[in-house]
Amino acid sequence: MSRPQEPHRPFLSFGNPFRMISPKGSYLSPKLLALLNTFEETLAGRIKKLKPEGREDVLRLSWMRFAMETLCGIHTDIKSLITALELPVCDWDEKWIDVYLDNSVKLLDICIAFSSEISRLKQGHLFLQCVLHNLGGASSKQFVRARSSLDGWRQHIASKNPRLDNCFCVMDGLVQTLDLPKIKNSSKGKVLMRAMYGVKVVTLLVCSIFAATFSGSAKRLIDLKVPETYLWAEAFADLQTFVNTESRSICSSGSVTVLKELEAVDSGVKKLYPIVQDGADPVEAEVLQDSTSDLGESSEKLSQGLDLLAKEVDRFFQIVLTGRDALLCNLRIGGNISDQVRANKNVEGPTVR
Rank of each mutant, 00 (worst) to 15 (best):
F316P: 03
A326Q: 12
M68T: 04
T83N: 07
L205G: 03
D93R: 11
K188M: 14
D281S: 14
I21S: 07
I118W: 05
L295S: 06
G189I: 13
A310S: 11
D325A: 14
I222V: 14
V201P: 02
C167T: 02
Y197K: 02
S62L: 10
K24Q: 15
Q123C: 09
L205T: 04
K182L: 15
K301I: 12
T292W: 00
K31H: 12
Q123R: 15
G45C: 12
I337Y: 08
E261F: 11
S255K: 13
N330A: 15
L308G: 07
E263A: 13
M20K: 00
K51F: 05
D93C: 10
E246I: 09
D102G: 15
G136W: 00
D102Y: 00
V206Y: 01
C329I: 10
M193R: 06
L221N: 02
D91I: 11
A67N: 03
F143R: 02
S159F: 09
V283H: 10
N346P: 04
L192A: 14
I209S: 03
W232C: 13
S249R: 15
A158V: 00
K79I: 07
V276I: 11
E246H: 06
W232R: 13
L150F: 02
K260E: 11
S13P: 04
G189D: 05
S303Q: 11
L126D: 04
W153L: 12
T177R: 00
F143N: 01
R194N: 05
S116G: 10
G25D: 14
V170N: 00
N244S: 06
K190G: 15
K190V: 13
R324C: 06
Q155V: 04
G189S: 13
L135S: 09
D165L: 13
M193N: 06
L43I: 02
I97E: 08
K79L: 13
T229F: 05
